[in-house]
């Protein structure tokens, strides 16, 4: 049984099909890179897996059960956009998570904040985009969840801080956890991901093991990304 599994999942917004019959199995113990240009459906897929967005058709299962209130206890989702209440300080954000998530550790949050060079008295409203991005990661990884879905974790984060973020992500990853990362910065994920999910225009192109791909096709994830989404836009075998 896969940790997270979508069956023919589809989401239609008006005239646009954001996710188009995607069937995908993601297992614990892997770090998946979910790749695709803007608007290819990555965020919508994640939001459906987090239970924030209701599918038009198909379903997503967490440990064999349809995504529900129960699964939210074990799935930590981080959106690209800031979503904290505007009156909150960094401390308030931690209190909020501790109020609602049993797997949250205040101690872990404190450590992560320190590494991200954030202090608890900062007002979220006053944070720069880079600081906000770090705060989102810190509070999400402070949960001891079974599934982490981080949407664009490297967005707005400068080169030096990216190493720290990568380290934090790797620390959170383990054999019994599933880590799903989406990013435009494909190169950032070459070494930390072991599988890649390529999505284009709402459709799943492929889900591959990266080292197998490097061995058999002799291409990197970045090369493959170029092949799939490159100039002509046609999938090349």
């Amino acid at each position: 049984m896969s940790m997270l599994e979508s069956k023919e999942i589809t989401k239609v917004f008006g005239a646009k099909t954001a996710v188009d019959h995607v069937t995908l199995q993601l297992d614990a113990g892997h770090v998946y890179a979910m790749l695709g240009p803007n608007g290819s459906g990555k965020t919508t897929w994640m939001k459906m897996a987090a239970g924030l967005c209701k599918p038009t058709g198909g379903e997503i299962r967490f440990q064999g059960e349809p995504v529900s209130i129960e699964s939210r206890k074990h799935v930590a989702y981080m959106s690209t956009e800031p979503y904290f209440y505007s009156w909150m300080t960094v401390r308030d954000v931690g209190v909020y998570y501790s109020d609602f998530f049993q797997d949250y550790s205040a101690e872990r949050y404190r450590q992560l904040l320190q590494r991200m060079e954030l202090t608890e008295d900062l007002k979220t409203r006053a944070l720069s985009s880079g600081m906000m991005a770090k705060l989102k990661i810190a509070v999400t990884l402070a949960r001891d969840a079974q599934v982490y879905m981080l949407d664009e974790p490297f967005n707005g984060i400068d080169l030096l801080a990216r190493d720290e973020i990568r380290a934090c992500i790797l620390e959170a990853a383990s054999e019994d956890k599933l880590m799903l990362l989406s990013s435009h910065l494909v190169e950032e994920m070459e070494a930390i991901a072991d599988c890649a999910v390529f999505i284009r225009e709402g459709k799943l192109i492929e889900c591959v093991d990266l080292d197998t791909m490097r061995t058999e096709m002799g291409v990197s994830m970045t090369d493959r990304y170029r092949q799939i989404y490159g100039h002509a836009g046609e999938v090349q075998a």
Binding site: L170, S174, D194
Partner: peptide
Amino acid sequence: GRDLALSCSINPNTAAR
């Protein structure tokens, strides 16, 4: 394996491999 993954900044499965 875990420490190797962290110090080399690579996926834990890669380190195990």
